[in-house]
């Protein structure tokens, strides 16, 4: 395992991690500011944090209540 971590070229992987982090942070900020969401807020909190990559996207598409 240690070997693999060393062989990873971080210049390639870092941008992906940064994009995922931005998605999570923006989704969480939006969630705290939102007055109401489709479904309970705590549920979306866990979806955004725990469902890798698509969690924030699912929140943006289905979580925000439109009005």
């Amino acid at each position: 395992m240690q070997e693999i971590i060393e062989t990873i070229n971080w210049a390639i992987v870092t941008p992906i991690l940064i994009i995922q982090a931005i998605l999570i942070i923006v989704a969480l900020i939006d969630l705290t500011k939102a007055e109401s969401t489709n479904g309970p807020k705590w549920m979306w909190f866990f979806i955004i944090l725990l469902v890798n990559t698509i969690g924030p996207i699912i929140y943006f598409i289905f979580g925000r209540s439109r009005d």
């Binding site: 994009i19 931005i22 998605l23 923006v26 989704a27 996207i57 925000r64």
Partner: peptide
């Protein structure tokens, strides 16, 4: 306001 300018481009990059 609904952050589409942020998340849609990021999703396309991914």
């Amino acid at each position: 306001r609904n952050k589409k300018w942020i998340w849609v481009p990021l999703v396309f990059i991914l």
